[in-house]
Write a protein that binds this DNA or RNA. Structure first.
Length: 215
DNA sequence: ATCCCGAGGG
DNA sequence: CCCTCTGGAT
């Protein structure tokens, strides 16, 4: 029996529609180096990119190297990132990650997802964001937005981000992975919100498998 | 109240 | 699998 909400065949239409709607879809974290993006991405958990950018602007003006962060000290780092939430864990992880970078990677951010994941505080999603946006290596990071939107559009059906990542990578060609990630995020943030999706302004309302009619 | 580009630990 | 960490925006 055919799965009724299997929309893999609609993937090209979904891609082109979202690209037309969000031609500026991109990484919204501000960075100049892979290390800056790594730190910004770790900081981005549970808060908006906009506020991460405010904090990193002043932090990176002070230092943007692993050695510099170590010199800053964990307590001072905590104080600088406090307003971003989860500040203790983030500071602890960033501090430890800088030590690993210096000790095992000659102070350079590795261009490999598996190596990146050896860094404290770097999971699958963060590693994918760094390799794709800092090094141009195709990757499809599945965060809360990508997960939600992919399910609503019928592009994914699995229960874990890892499995959804696999599903999406099979549906879209490798050279599109990074852009697909950004398009789904923009759609999730601007229109397909977690709580009250704005279906009335959704360009995909005609093919969505989960249209919300109560808003 | 609920959500924000999560990850680690139990 | 679940829980915890966290301030700010809405």
């Amino acid at each position: 029996m055919t799965k009724i909400n299997n929309q893999e065949s609609n993937a090209p239409l979904i891609f082109s529609t979202l690209l037309e709607t969000f031609p500026d879809a991109r990484c919204e974290l501000e960075f100049h180096t892979p290390f800056e993006l790594l730190i910004a991405t770790i900081l981005s958990a549970q808060c908006t990119d906009e506020r991460v950018n405010i904090v990193t602007a002043s932090l990176f003006a002070e230092t943007n190297t692993p050695e510099g962060i170590i010199a800053l000290g964990q307590i001072e780092l905590e104080n600088q990132i406090r307003s971003l939430g989860l500040f203790h864990n983030k500071a602890k992880n960033i501090f430890a990650a800088c030590q690993v970078l210096i000790k095992d990677f000659a102070g350079q951010v590795p261009e490999d997802v598996d190596l990146l994941r050896k860094l404290p505080g770097v999971g699958r999603k963060t590693a994918n964001v760094v390799v794709s946006n800092a090094f141009g290596i195709p990757a499809l990071a599945v965060d809360t937005h990508v997960f939600r939107v992919a399910h609503r559009l019928g592009l994914a059906h699995c229960k874990t981000p890892e499995k959804v990542e696999e599903e999406l990578m099979l549906i879209f060609p490798r050279e599109r992975w990074t852009l697909v990630h950004h398009l789904l995020i923009f759609h999730g943030r601007r229109i397909c919100h977690a709580r009250k999706p704005n279906c009335k302004e959704c360009p995909l309302v005609g093919i969505c498998t989960e249209v919300q009619t109560c808003n």
